[in-house]
Write a protein that binds this DNA or RNA. Structure first.
Length: 302
RNA sequence: GGCGUCAUAGCCAAGCGGUAAGGCCAAGGUCUGCAAAACCUUUAUGCCCCGGUUCAAAUCCGGGUGGCGCCU
């Protein structure tokens, strides 16, 4: 069975180019693992690979949702897994590429994701409870039905507390009892560029400048004009929410740009933390794309 | 030159005699159906400098230094 290649790591480290080159060299196709690349119409703010950047390599899981959709990990898993399995069956090399660790884990490991579909009504109900009676009260509710899970969650972590309550309410089972060990679904080689922090931040700054130059503000304006609500899920993406907010407050592009840079740096740091736990992650020396590709191929053939 | 006013962490800032709030930034971390989301933790043996009063001073007094404002 062919192995998959996983190109992960922080934003702005050159994942796209590395993935395309590896796919080209190993008869592969790219499967994106990115929470915002799935949305149509979000191009410049997501640094969506252009036709020429894709270099004739097939890309999957990009532009599979409308900006008004509410896309989630389970949607990702449902769409991405069949593609990946098909490629493996065809003897091709799936090159999974992306910085959304949560999506990556869902694709790479067999997990139940809580085993309960999202239920808007239940979520709204508990959201109201949290607002009216307080986060502590909501957390107390969870403590009653699933004390083990409640113990692990901070009362302020309302999203997860609600999710745990949702699982219990819709399935009657406790989240804490679904201790499914993460088993890999197939063999894979994971790689990531390891930039010094300073350099990574400098790359991020440059990338954001580039996005502004390419018309991020116009893109956001266009999405809003086309009826995408300000509070749409995709508008929570970095670059989008700041522009929406900035336009409301009359900020100039320079101020928006600074905020986007800061948030992107914070995001990159979270990604680094997340990927620290990825087992057998091979760190690639940044700087020379050519030799990085060679390194990946060498590791792949081992 | 005179008078007044202010000086607290990288930044903003509370405190007004009893042993340094808070916010931002930064760093570290969590992550099982919103994840570019959400959440957690840490961050001044020290309050411009020197001296004094006091059991006790960021807080009061005197003198410096620096910023700001007004007057000449």
């Amino acid at each position: 069975m062919k192995k998959a290649i996983v190109v992960c790591g922080a934003t702005a480290t050159g994942k796209t180019e590395l993935a395309v080159r590896c796919a080209a060299a190993l008869n592969g196709e790219v499967i994106s693992a990115d929470a915002l690349l799935v949305y149509r119409g979000l191009n410049v703010g997501t640094a969506k690979p252009t036709e020429s950047e894709r270099a004739g390599i097939a890309h999957h899981l990009i532009d599979v949702a409308d900006p008004t959709d509410r896309f989630s990990v389970s949607d990702y898993e449902r769409l991405a897994l069949p593609v990946l399995e098909r490629l493996l069956a065809e003897g091709k090399t799936p090159v999974v590429c992306g910085g959304t660790g949560f999506y990556l884990n869902a694709l790479l490991y067999r997990r139940t994701l809580g085993g309960a579909p999202a239920d808007e009504n239940v979520r709204r109900k508990y959201q109201t409870v949290a607002e009216e009676k307080g986060k502590g009260y909501l957390h107390g509710l969870l403590r009653e039905v699933d004390p083990v899970c409640a113990e692990k969650l901070h009362p302020n972590d309302v999203k997860r507390v609600i999710r745990a309550l949702e699982i219990y309410e819709t399935t009657g089972k406790r989240k804490s009892e679904q201790n499914d060990a993460p088993t890999p679904r197939f063999p894979f080689l994971a790689v990531a560029f390891d930039y010094p922090r300073e350099e990574l931040y400098a790359r991020i700054d440059r990338r954001v400048d580039e996005m502004m130059r390419r018309g991020l503000v116009d893109e956001v304006r266009g999405l809003l004009r086309d009826g995408v609500p300000e509070d749409a899920q995709c508008m929570q993406g970095i670059g989008y929410k700041e522009v929406v907010e900035g336009m409301k407050n009359g900020y100039n592009q320079s101020i928006m740009s600074d905020i986007i840079k800061k948030n992107t740096r914070n995001y990159a740091k979270r990604q680094l933390t997340f990927f620290k736990k990825t087992e057998n992650l091979h760190r690639l020396t940044p700087g020379d794309m050519q030799s990085a590709v060679r390194e990946v191929i060498r590791l792949y053939d081992d």
